[in-house]
């Protein structure tokens, strides 16, 4: 958790309770998008779970997930970065760092 936070440029803001809540929100939103799009049980959506190997996503599902993340969190995820988002945890981490 704190490893992730260290990427943030302004730590004093990060530690305000409101932002801690937003972090939890990001994880929850990511999970709910995955549950919705892949039709899996919430309990399966663990940080280690791989979209393709564990959650049954095919290549189109993966593209759609990335697009949903972009839409929901108002970010643009470049293709070279998207390629590195293969697990639930990687998605959460990326969005925590980049979500606006």
């Amino acid at each position: 958790m704190f490893d992730n936070l260290s990427f943030n440029s302004n730590l004093c803001i990060v530690f305000e309770p409101q932002n801690i809540l937003e972090m939890a929100d990001i994880a929850e939103k990511v999970k709910s998008i995955i549950v919705e799009k892949l039709g899996v049980e919430a309990s399966e959506v663990t940080p280690e779970a791989s979209f393709t190997n564990d959650l049954g996503a095919d290549s189109l599902d993966t593209v759609e997930l990335i697009m949903e993340f972009e839409k929901e969190f108002n970010v643009s995820i470049p293709d070279d970065q998207a390629e590195n988002i293969q697990t639930v945890g990687q998605a959460i981490t990326y969005l925590e760092e980049n979500a606006k």
């Binding site: 189109l60 593209v63 759609e64 697009m67 839409k71």
Partner: peptide, 9 residues
Amino acid sequence: PKINPFFIP
């Protein structure tokens, strides 16, 4: 063009 990947199929 944020076209859904399932659009065509």
